[in-house]
Nucleic acid binder design. Structure first.
Lengths: 263, 263
DNA sequence: GGATACGGCG
DNA sequence: CGCCGTATCC
């Protein structure tokens, strides 16, 4: 088993302490981070090394976005599909124990779900490119695709399907595209393989409601998809969403998601 | 004895925890704060009340500057001398146990010690006004003048007299003016009354040298001056600079100064 | 270095 | 709400 985690950390420098706490508690073999919000040279590599994660592949940029893969076992960076037409740091890929790990950060898309909103158009553009690029890859190396995909695809991936149908992250234009990427890419959604509908699953709660536990108005934006050759679907312990992390001091608005993969 | 403390706190909201810790440990009757950096309504009055300091006189403004007097004993705000020609919140005054407490925050004056530097000219302007205003007051109510005066007047109030002679806070233009305010106002500098030259005394260490203890490159910018009728000068315990506070977590660049006054 | 302000972003 | 950027102040 390879234990892999994904977490939108919303500034890795600001939250390096809680990242190390999570690594010590959950002990994943691989951690994929999104929104590291730093340049490559500003990534807190020393702290990861001291935590036992000596192998890393950082794709950063100034200020926004940025993704990284850190690992206890050897890692070989590989060329990542060009999902972003702009030069934003939204994807990193590496070969780990014979598995290709793809770590993605899909644009959020801003507030208005219309093509007149350039950020929403950009998001759909990235999702379309993902469909094309991952379709081609079918039948190749065992692959796990993880990250903040910024789409809650299913009815039970949001706190209210009806109320969010016209809210960015849950519109049909987005969910249809994301489902197509998953199916055409030959991926299994490990969360739903372990915890089928109608169980509600969330990985993100907005900062804007301070009492996130009260109404539990979350969304499942963070995903772990595996090709069927490495997908573990029958062990309850092999999938976990670390919900209480949302209550740690000065948390990210996303929590870590962890899954085990066949080696 | 009235035990009075002065501290440039560099944001009272950010450091309310360490202010309460200081109050619990040093137990002054009165605390004068500078650079509270908030509006009156944003001042953490509740925390002070819970700490037993129920009386306060807050002179705040948005963003910068701002001074406050908090007290365990009753306090009556009085009109403060108009030391600042601009409308900056740089002085608060109150009558406490028959003593007029004047809490001042003199402008820093920026980097270049020349009249072409408008911030330096403003600083000299404030010092000149202080001279005029406190000269007039001579012979009145027992008075204590405290605060961040942003001038290290004496040779032993800086880590290197020679190297700082042309550095803002220790230029003759500033030190001459500050000494004149003190002498014409009839004030005793309690720090030097207790700890005469050539002992070096500092109350401020720049944030810009992380190893402030190594070279000890401090300055004495924070002062407690009393009219001679209330000046205590012969009790070692009646004056203290709380140097170790500079090593607390996320400290101010200034430390508290405490003195006892005759009642 | 470390506060503030403001605007952009999510 | 709480990051980032920028600028300004100390």
């Amino acid at each position: 088993m390879l234990k892999i985690a994904t977490w939108n950390i919303n500034s890795v420098r600001l939250r390096i302490g809680m990242v190390c706490r999570f690594l010590a508690e959950a002990k994943p073999d691989v951690l994929c981070l999104q929104e590291i919000k730093c340049r490559d040279g500003e990534f807190p590599a020393k702290a990861f090394k001291e935590a036992g994660y000596k192998h890393m592949h950082v794709v950063g940029q100034k200020g926004w976005h940025g993704v990284a893969i850190v690992s206890r076992v050897k890692l070989e960076p590989v060329e990542a599909p060009a999902i972003c037409p702009k030069k934003e740091a939204r994807i990193a890929a590496a070969l780990i124990e014979g598995i290709e790990v793809h770590n993605l950060y899909v644009p959020a898309g801003a507030d208005v779900p219309e093509l007149t909103n350039p950020k929403f158009a950009h998001k759909l553009n990235v999702l379309d490119r993902m469909k094309t690029l991952y379709k081609k890859r079918k039948g190749g190396t065992p692959t796990v695709l993880v990250g903040d995909l910024n789409v809650a695809p299913g009815e039970f991936d949001v706190w209210s399907h009806k109320q969010l149908l016209n809210v960015v992250s849950h519109t049909p234009g987005e969910t249809d595209r994301l489902n197509a990427v998953r199916d055409l890419g030959g991926f299994v959604d490990l969360a739903r393989a372990h915890k089928p509908d109608p169980e509600k699953l969330f990985t993100w709660w907005s900062y804007r409601s301070p009492d996130w536990t009260k109404n539990n108005r979350g969304r499942r934006l963070d995903h772990i998809w595996a090709t069927s050759d490495i997908a573990v679907t029958s062990q309850a312990a092999a999938f976990h969403i670390h919900v209480p992390v949302r209550s740690w001091e000065r948390p990210s608005d996303h929590v870590p998601v962890v899954a085990g993969l066949k080696l």
